[in-house]
Design a protein around this nucleic acid. Sequence first.
DNA 1: TCGTTGAGTCTACGGTCGTTGACTGAACTG
DNA 2: CAGTTCAGTCAACGACCGTAGACTCAACGA
Lengths: 197, 197
Amino acid sequence: MSDNRPHLSRAEQRRQTENRILAAARQLFATLGYDRTTIRGIAAAAEADPGLVMRYFGSKDALFARVAEVAPDQPVAGTPEEVAELLLAAMADKLESDAPGALAMLRSMLTHPDASDEVRAAIAEQQRQVAAALSADDAVLRAGLIGALTIGVLLSRHLLQLEGVRDAGAAEIVSVLRPAVHAITQGAAERDPRPRH
Amino acid sequence: MSDNRPHLSRAEQRRQTENRILAAARQLFATLGYDRTTIRGIAAAAEADPGLVMRYFGSKDALFARVAEVAPDQPVAGTPEEVAELLLAAMADKLESDAPGALAMLRSMLTHPDASDEVRAAIAEQQRQVAAALSADDAVLRAGLIGALTIGVLLSRHLLQLEGVRDAGAAEIVSVLRPAVHAITQGAAERDPRPRH
DNA sequence: TCGTTGAGTCTACGGTCGTTGACTGAACTG
DNA sequence: CAGTTCAGTCAACGACCGTAGACTCAACGA
């Protein structure tokens, strides 16, 4: 493991090893989820030693937290139509980039409490912004359903690899989903002001 | 554990114990997922012995398979509008009943290969029927997206417990989702340049 | 009544896990 | 060049897991 090319400064060597570990951790967490991924497995994939992983990152949990970071969504606001388009654009991004860190978070969100909280918080934030833009009595529900749709689509494509959703292009998916998302964001306005019951 | 009421036939006693184990297993698998649920934990929750769980159900995997059974969806066919309504009705059912068996399957589908296959197969079957009814070139994609939406909504409500989606009534959710689902099923006909007959 | 069955209990094996700490040797520093 | 630092190695720990098998004893059938 130490027989690398000619000269490598100690700092550079360390940086490379850390990166190998991070890359291996990202890939394994995304593929197997938190529980089935082991420090030993990460170390083996990174051609490093398990003890090294611990020393560099402290603990399995800390490594996961370091690896599975969710890039914050950019703010969403405007008319319901604009909000729908912004959400669709955000979805298109996530459909194309299969960032292993985000996939690790997605994969583990049903079994690892921290991942669950993280995902819930991320969705809640987007939900808050969308709900504010919709301004209807069921705006929170509508915003949540869009979040649910997003999660379902990403999950079906990247993790479950559903036929059709896996193969289609991001643009195609967004194009099919566009009327549906608009229907959810605009329905609030069309709905009559009287409470249904 | 054996000090139950007065008289219990051996068969009856066994039946009761099996049921306690099954109930505990369902609840734990649904709450923690496959990996974090242990035979020992199930036995403790059922006030039984781990060895007994093994003897009655063979293995942890077999117990999971026994517990996490997905009721097959009823067939879907008809015009796109009818298909949309059938799917919405099916979703309403799943929104109300939080059957622990189905939730166990849902919770474990991202980490347990068997659960993953089971869910994928169930969705694929519904996808096949929906796609047949839509008869457009992107019908498979549209059917898959409806499956993705369904998974996302169930997951957000029962497992992630998203605000809004968790509290709303099933009828309310279906009512908000109706235009969206119709948009997905009907878009096929509108886009299809070739006349239908 | 007496041997058989089987529900329930208990102990232990083999394995894997996260984590720790001592150790080695080469790259650094003065 | 001597001393220090630190990347990397190694062996072991305690805990927990699924699972196996021997054991106890009350319900059962003949």
